[in-house]
């Protein structure tokens, strides 16, 4: 490692892919450079059957990253203790190389909304998110990574930048960060800020994992570009360039290709992993 901070997880400094059941045969027969896979925690909270059997099999072959999408760490209300217990059970038996979640909320009194919803960056939300991260890390007995969001709008209430907010969380809780480079590009485009400057200001020494994924393009009410974090397409060239810049600046990091809908055939996803592998290999460890 270039820096003195111990890595917040045990993922290999190599490429991984978001795992989907459709890839089970292909990824085990022909993984290419893929050394680890990431699963969505909530899909493995059943009692048994094929999903858990596949996961046990994958865990013998690949390092596993568990990525939660439903903990609602950014939410106003208390964490769902039942959900945290289910997560603790999964983490307990699987002992994955990493656990990560999002700087977002997804559950309110009305129920689970199945989206990563945004929050204003204030002292009050900072204190609450820090408490939630402490609770998760205490329950799981391990450090977690928190992912920067894709944002589509800004809050009048925000008092600090996203990077100041994330940096403060790492200091208060000891958590690491998951840097989604596509999210950086999407947010910078949508907020009309500079993506490279964001990377340059980001506390890269706390980053335990990088995400790369595809987005879709739309426009807002005034015709300004509005990118949507859809995970249904290849990584675009400007995001590859931003990724190379990130790795050159921060050193090699475990890097994931995320593709969650309109899934391509395995060779297409593997080729994305190979491209990331090439970037990692071109940089000193």
């Amino acid at each position: 490692m270039l820096d003195a901070t111990p890595s917040p997880n045990r993922l290999p400094c190599a490429t991984g892919v978001g795992y989907k059941a459709a890839y089970f045969d292909a990824i085990t027969a022909d993984p290419g450079p893929v050394a680890w896979v990431e699963i969505h925690a909530e899909n493995y909270m059943g009692e048994g059957g094929r999903p858990l059997a596949q996961l046990r099999h994958l865990a013998e072959r690949f390092a596993i990253s568990v990525h939660g999408v439903g903990l609602s760490i950014g939410g106003e209300g208390p964490l769902d203790r039942d959900h945290l217990a289910r997560l603790k059970h999964l983490i307990g038996w699987l002992d994955p190389a990493s656990f990560s979640e999002h700087l977002a909320w997804s559950t309110h009194e009305t129920g689970f909304l199945n989206d990563l919803l945004p929050l204003p960056y204030t002292q009050a939300t900072l204190a609450r998110v820090a408490d939630h991260i402490d609770e998760v890390q205490d329950a799981l007995g391990r450090r977690m990574l928190l992912e920067n969001p894709s944002t589509y709008l800004a809050f009048q209430a925000s008092e600090m930048s996203e990077i100041d907010f994330l940096s403060a969380l790492t200091r208060r809780t000891g958590c690491g960060l998951l840097l989604d480079v596509n999210n950086v590009f999407v947010s910078a485009t949508n907020q009309q800020t500079d993506a490279t400057s964001y990377i340059d200001a980001f506390p890269l020494h706390t980053v335990g994992e990088i995400h790369l994924g595809g987005h879709s393009e739309d426009a807002d009410d005034h015709g300004a570009p509005l990118l949507i974090d859809s995970h249904d397409a290849p990584v675009v060239d400007p995001v590859w360039a931003l990724y190379a810049h990130t790795i050159a600046r921060g050193g090699r990091k475990p890097t994931l290709i995320e593709w969650d809908s309109d899934l391509p055939d395995w060779p297409v996803l593997r080729a994305e992993a190979e491209r990331a592998h090439g970037v990692l290999e071109g940089v000193r460890p």
Partner: peptide
């Protein structure tokens, strides 16, 4: 909720 120019978020919220 606003866009980068300080106008109401509109369609951005609709995402």
């Amino acid at each position: 909720l606003f866009d980068p120019e300080g106008r109401p978020a509109g369609k951005r919220y609709d995402v």
